[in-house]
Structures are given as C-alpha cells and as structure tokens.
Nucleic acid binder design. Structure first.
Length: 274
DNA sequence: TTCCAGGCTATGT
DNA sequence: ACATAGCATGGA
C-alpha cells in the first residue's frame, strides 16, 4: 500500500490492505455513514472525510489530510501484520475475507461513549445514537463535531434517553462526571494494567468494553475483546468453553502483540458468515 | 408475540 | 471467585 498527501486529500494506491468497507464495517467505529458502495463519510472529533473508490485507488477528501493519515494508521505495514498472522491456524480465511482491515486511531472520548452504548445493543442503533449526540457538538457547517467533555456534561439523562441510549443514559451522565475529575492526557502514559483498572472503575465500563477502549481508543494492540462472536471463534480454535476473562487471556497468550489485529480479522469474518 | 443486539450492575451463592 | 436477573429500545 502507498499513499500521497495533497492539500485537501489523500490518495491511497496499491490497496491490497486498504478497503474502506472492511475498515468501517468491522465493528471498531460507529461514526460514519454510507453514501454508496465504496463511498463513505467518516467523522472523528471535529474532523470529516469523504472516502471513495475511484480508478483502482481510494480518495480521502478532507480539510485535514495529516489528521486522517494518522486516523487510518497509514504508516503501519498491514501486509507485514497479515504475513505474521498467516502462520497461525484458522487465520488464512479470516485474513483473506477482511484483507483491507486497518485498526483506526480514534478519539478516546468517542470510543468510550460509543462502547458504553454498545452493551446489549445493536450496531445500527449505536450509530444512530452517536450521530444524535453529535448534534450537541459544535456546528462545523454541514456537520457537527463530537461534543467536548464540557458539552457532554451538560446533556441530561432524559436527553440521552431521547437519543436512544436506553438504560445506558445514566451511565453516560455518570461517566462524564467521573471524567471531569481526571486529567485524561495522563491516562495515555499508563501501562496496560493501570489503564484497564482505571477504565473498569468508570460507570458502564466492564471487561469487554474496557478491552475495546484499550484497543480502539488507546491503540493498545495487546488487548483481545471477547464478545458473543469471539466466543464462537474461541470454540473453533480451542474446542472448549471458559469464562470470557479466561478466553481473553488465552487468546492474548496465543497471539501476543498481534492480538488486537487478530481480533478484528476474526470478528469481521465470524460476524459475516451466513 | 417473542427474541435478539459486540454487556453491565447489582445481588445473590 | 462464579452465576443469574433485570435492564431500555427498536427491529426482525
């Protein structure tokens, strides 16, 4: 894969490991809309990008190309990651199926809110709620920025409910209060254990959601979120049942530094099997 | 109508 | 430490 940065766009060529559908539909992100096949709008913080396939290339149109070079993790060699993962059993099919997956570098606050909403919920509704929450953010002309923490703190439980958060509305109000008393920048220097323990202390954040925030909000790739789909994958690999915590530990021991990447290929593949 | 959706909290053993 | 009910909501 290669890319070129211009003033108002990025051009991605040799796209064997960049596929916008794989990237957005593999469950790591809720802040996008689909215009057509291979044509999406992507929102992150106060930024926006229009991504589409054209002439065997991807075009990422945006007013801030450098931001999206980082967001799409374009400096990481996913061909190398896939080559390493190929040596594992049961991985070849998943890698072929989701060959264009990349793990996005998303905003921690958006990930936190999104995955608190994810519990016992479905992806379409999470996306709708996230889009509605965005209307409380700054109007950027044509779209809204995701609300800052100060703005989020002014949203009431009833307003979150009206946006479809359900019983998670209370968690959102409480977690915003909790975050206000923390220097969030410092949390980026925590080691994996410190960070997970802190995340588990937040309202609405249990083991699975904490692992998702570690992986998608902090890019800690030695994290392996276990959900209903990964439970099935675990059975395929190890032929036994365990608690989700132990499954996650086994999978991290198995995949090591590649855990987060393996999780995404396997999740996307399993979730889309008939 | 009933079941399910990338689980969490609270409350038991 | 482990097991289970209840949780809002909308779509199939």
């Amino acid at each position: 894969m290669n890319y070129q940065v211009a003033k108002d766009k990025i051009i991605v060529t040799n796209i064997e490991d960049f596929n916008i559908e794989h990237i957005l539909e593999c469950g790591q992100v809720f802040t996008y809309t689909k215009n057509a096949e291979n044509d999406y709008n992507v929102y992150s913080k106060n930024k926006f990008a229009h991504v589409y396939f054209y002439d065997n290339k991807y075009v990422i149109e945006t007013s801030d190309p450098n931001y999206f070079v980082d967001f799409f993790d374009l400096e990481t060699d996913y061909s190398l990651i896939k080559r390493k993962l190929t040596s594992y059993e049961n991985m070849q099919d998943a890698i072929n199926f989701g060959s264009g997956i990349r793990i996005l570098k998303q905003d921690m606050l958006e990930i936190l809110i999104g995955f608190i909403l994810s519990s016992n919920n479905n992806i379409e509704r999470i996306k709708k709620t996230m889009q509605k929450i965005r209307t409380y953010g700054e109007n950027m002309g044509g779209y809204y920025a995701f609300p800052t923490l100060d703005r989020l703190c002014n949203i009431t439980e009833q307003q979150f409910k009206d946006m479809g958060a359900g019983y998670r509305a209370k968690y959102l109000v409480d977690v915003c209060k909790q975050l206000k008393s923390v220097n969030i920048q410092e949390t980026f220097f925590y080691d994996d254990n410190q960070l997970k323990n802190w995340l588990l202390s937040l309202c609405g954040v249990g083991p699975k959601v904490a692992d998702c925030i570690l992986l998608f909000g902090y890019h800690r790739c030695t994290s392996f979120p276990v959900d209903t789909w990964i439970e099935k994958v675990y059975w395929d690999i190890f032929k036994q049942k365990k608690s989700r915590l132990k499954m996650s530990q086994d999978l991290i021991n198995y995949f090591g530094d590649l855990s987060g990447y393996a999780q995404q290929y396997l999740f996307f593949y399993k979730r889309n099997q008939k």
